[in-house]
Structures are given as structure tokens and as C-alpha cells.
Simulated assay, not measured.
Amino acid sequence: MSQFDVKSFGKVAVLMGGTSAERKISLMSGGGVLAALRSRGVDAHAFDPAERDLGDLRREGFARCFIALHGRHGEDGTVQGALELLGIPYTGPGVMASSIAMDKVMTKRVWIAENLPTPRFVRLAADQQQREQVRAVPDVLGLPLIVKPPREGSSIGVTKVQGYSDMQDAVALSVRYDPDVLCEEFIDGDEVTCPVLGEGRHAQALPVIRILAPEGAYDYQNKYFTDDVKYQCPSGLPEAEEREIQRIVLAAYRTLGCRGWGRADLMIRASDRKPFLLEMNTSPGMTTHSLVPMSARAVGIAYEDLCLRVLASAALDTPAANGAPS
């Protein structure tokens, strides 16, 4: 028996697809969520904002939305703002938390202000990308370093730069996805991820997953379309290390004002085992390769129950609206 009264959810839209560079992954996530919700008796329907007007959500009587969109116009506060105006509760963080978390530079600034560990970085704005400025970045961050678009996900547009001569091409690739460029200190060590469910002091960190990618290439192709990456959950890390990662991730999640669910990605520096926060995903993947379902499974939460639990957490930023009849 489900702990949720699925009839109380009403008519549910699973928002998937969208217009970002991660459209393909979003359709995979949304398809999985849709099937899971329907299997548990939820009146759930696919809704692609790239093909339909969001106003149709209200016109067609949708009571809540499960956001399975990834990237821009799905994870960045814009859809969340539209749903606030429509008065339709949605899954995941609200407008501000979504907007900040989508921008890795803003996220890092918030974390640094709260003394949370994140790799050192240089931001190259659109007017700071002359050859000499680009070439100077390794002097600040050392080599190797990472170059990536600050407002994309799924490892799209990311380059690991090994030498000065690679900087220009790395910046050119990144600029295809975002006018700004984030250059980040490379942390050599274990790559891990840690999901969170809930809100505020009730938020709960799920088990840490250790990611073992071929030659450290945890890129778009390996993330979604191969079985070459190995995932360890339980992570196999010392218990104290796992607990410390969960503590940092919860602090990072709360500091950004997240709710519902999220997933933080981190690196553990091999030299001293210090964890560093890379980013917070506020609409995590829900594909067959995805990490939140894997972590949830390790504590006995089935994929379908995870989808129901996230859907049950759907809310609005505006308290008055939360209590308003739908």
C-alpha cells in the first residue's frame, strides 16, 4: 500500500522535453517518471513546454506539476516563476533557489560566503575573453583545470585543460552554450554525488554514490549512453567521510534555499580527503542511468515510491497560494 492518497494529487503534468541542450535527457527522465506515477494510479500526463503553452496547464485543470525538465527554461527558475503565477504547485526548489543553483558561479559565491568548500575559480565574462586574458587563467588556477559553461548541465561543453595551448579551444567550446565561461581548479580525487530529499531541518541526505568513470571521463556520453561508468552505492568510503559529505551537502542545499529534492556533485581531494562542492542539481535526472533513484534504492525506496514522494512535496513559494483552493 502506498503511503500517499494518489487521488488527492489530482491531475498531474509531468513537464519534460523543453528547449535546453538537455532536452533528450529530459524526455528520458520524464518518460520514466510518467510511467512510474501512472503505475501507482496517479492521473499523470506528459507536457512538453517546447510544444505547448504553459497556460494550458491551468486551462486543462492540472493540479500540480512534476518538473522533469533539465537545464535552461526548466531548472533555472523561469518555469517555476510561470507556475507561481499560474498558482500550480510544482516539484523541486522555488524560483530563487532554482535560479541561483542553475548558475554555478552564483552558487559558488553563496557557498563561499557560507564557508562551504568549493574549488577556486575564475569567471570570464563575455568581454573578458581576449587571448591574453584566457591564457592567464592557468597562472591563477594551475594545471590541469576545468573549463565549462556556468549555466549548463549534463557535462555539456566541459573541457579538462591540460596545457596553456588548450585554453582557447576550451573557451570556444564553452561559449557555444553560454556567453560567460567558468574556469575551475581541478580537484584530483574521487568523484561522488549525494542526493537530498525534503526541506529545511527535515531535509535528509541519501547515501553517497562514488562514480568511477573510464580514465575519469564522466562526460555526457558516458553519463547517459554507455555502461562504462561504474557506480558504487554504498560508496565504500569510510563512515566518517560519508557522514561529513552528507553534512556538507545538507548545508549546501539549505544555504541555497532548496526544497523537495536535489543532488550535489562533489570531488574528494586525494591528497587530504577534503570534499569540494561542484554544483547543486535542482531537477536531477530520473533516467535508467540516474543517480538519485540508485541512492534511494540503497535505503529501500523504490523508483515509483521516490516519484510519489517527490510529487507529494510539490509546493509554491507563496504561502498564501499554498493554502488556496486549486
Rank of each mutant, 00 (worst) to 15 (best):
V249H: 03
H70K: 05
R263W: 12
D166C: 08
Q3V: 02
R259D: 11
A113M: 11
V137E: 15
I88N: 06
K104L: 10
A312N: 13
A320D: 10
I88R: 01
A170N: 13
G200S: 04
L143P: 07
G257A: 05
G260A: 04
V192E: 14
G257P: 12
M28S: 03
G300F: 03
A13D: 04
G18M: 00
R247H: 12
L182H: 08
G81C: 05
L141M: 13
L278V: 02
R243E: 13
G32L: 00
I209V: 15
A50E: 14
E185W: 09
D317N: 06
K104C: 10
G32Y: 03
L173F: 11
D227K: 01
V140G: 06
D139I: 06
A82G: 13
L86C: 09
S295T: 00
S283Y: 00
L277C: 09
E184D: 07
L278I: 05
G285I: 00
A21E: 08
R109L: 15
I88W: 05
K108L: 07
L116C: 13
A97Q: 12
D76S: 09
V229Q: 02
A264H: 04
K274N: 11
E60H: 11
L266Q: 07
T288F: 04
E191K: 09
L212A: 11
E242G: 06
R247Y: 04
L145K: 13
L86R: 04
A21K: 01
G300K: 00
T107P: 12
A240Q: 09
V137N: 11
K11N: 09
V134L: 12
D178Y: 02
M280D: 04
S20F: 05
A324F: 08
V181I: 06
S8F: 01
R176W: 11
V110I: 04
D228M: 01
I187R: 12
Q3W: 05
R254N: 12
P49S: 09
A298C: 01
I156K: 05
Q133A: 14
S283I: 10
A35W: 05
M96K: 07
R40L: 14
S39R: 07
M102T: 01
Y253M: 04
C183A: 15
V171H: 14
L15A: 08
G32T: 00
L206E: 12
T318E: 13
E241A: 04
L37D: 06
V6M: 05
Q162F: 14
